[in-house]
Computed example of a mutant assay.
Amino acid sequence: MLIFILLIVSYLLGAIPAGLWVGKIFFKKNLHDYGSGNTGTTNTFRILGIKAGIAVFMFDLLKGTLATLLPLFFHVHGISPLIFGLIAVLGHTFSIFDHFKGGKAVATSGGVVLGFSPLFLLYLLLVFLIVLFLFSMISLSSIAAAIAAIIGILIFPSINFILPNYDLLFSIIIFVLAIIIIVRHKSNIKRIKNHTESLVPFGFNLSKQIKK
């Protein structure tokens, strides 16, 4: 019964649409009506500004971490903490508080990894920042980090780097999270191909997206 309750809590925690609520409460703006229409970190930064973006990013990140740590806090055994983290990501992506809409799962997935393997998250963050600096696109950086995660779970255990051994469940969860992130960026991928994707105001823009 406790496991079931904590799974529900994980979903509800992940489902909290921080960007949507911050926009409505403090800025009188519905993020669905602006920019990409997404309620995640990137659109929050773009529409509501740096302070709101940082606040939403931290909340979305830490709700993934908190969900992953819930079974440890309540001394629950017999089920991996990663399951709770995955449920939180699904809550974030399909939020009951937002007509089952949601963000693109990047920050919350990062929070799950932070709660289970901080060094692996550091590797993904490094990939994210390098791609961001070279191509000036948060979307492409997120996709690259997702792909890097899949590569990491396949290669790192064999060379005893960051991941000391193959963990089947960790590998499956990381693969699922990566696929969710990539699929949720379908529209971004189309814009990248058309050279019309939104850019951050720094970096080399190596793919030559058209600046707006």
Rank of each mutant, 00 (worst) to 15 (best):
M1F: 13
M1K: 12
M1P: 15
L2T: 14
F4P: 06
I5P: 02
L7T: 10
V9W: 11
L13I: 15
L13V: 14
A15R: 07
A15F: 03
P17E: 12
L20W: 15
V22R: 12
G23T: 09
K24T: 12
F26D: 06
F27R: 07
K29A: 01
N30A: 06
N30T: 07
L31H: 11
H32D: 13
H32P: 12
H32C: 04
D33P: 08
G35N: 09
S36W: 01
S36I: 04
T39C: 12
T41E: 03
T42C: 02
T42Y: 10
T44P: 06
R46K: 09
L48S: 00
L48M: 12
I50C: 12
A52G: 11
A52I: 09
I54H: 11
I54E: 05
A55Q: 02
V56K: 07
F57V: 10
F57H: 14
M58R: 11
F59K: 13
F59S: 12
L61H: 05
L61D: 12
L62Q: 10
G64A: 10
T65P: 14
L66S: 11
L70M: 08
L70I: 14
P71M: 11
F73R: 06
F74V: 08
H75T: 14
V76R: 10
H77R: 14
H77Q: 15
G78R: 10
I79A: 09
P81I: 00
L82G: 03
F84V: 08
G85E: 11
L90Y: 14
L90Q: 13
L90M: 11
F94N: 00
I96V: 12
F97L: 06
H99M: 04
H99C: 04
G102R: 07
V106P: 05
A107E: 11
V112D: 00
L114K: 07
L114R: 08
G115Q: 01
G115P: 04
S117R: 13
P118S: 10
L119T: 07
L121D: 04
L122R: 08
L122P: 13
L125T: 15
L125S: 15
L126A: 15
L126H: 05
F128I: 13
L132A: 13
S136I: 07
M137S: 15
I138S: 08
S139N: 05
S139D: 05
L140N: 09
S141R: 08
S142C: 05
I143P: 03
A144D: 07
A144S: 15
I147V: 15
A149S: 04
I151A: 14
I151R: 00
I151D: 00
F156Q: 03
P157M: 00
P157D: 01
S158E: 11
S158D: 10
N160L: 13
P164Y: 03
D167P: 01
L169E: 00
L169V: 09
F170N: 03
F170C: 02
I172Y: 02
I174E: 02
F175V: 05
F175H: 03
F175P: 00
F175D: 03
V176I: 13
L177Y: 00
I179F: 00
I180E: 00
V183C: 01
R184E: 02
R184P: 01
H185T: 01
K186W: 02
K190F: 10
I192V: 10
K193A: 14
K193M: 13
N194I: 10
H195W: 07
H195T: 12
P201A: 01
P201M: 01
F202C: 07
L206M: 10
L206D: 12
S207A: 15
S207D: 14
I210R: 13
K211N: 15
K211F: 04
K212W: 08
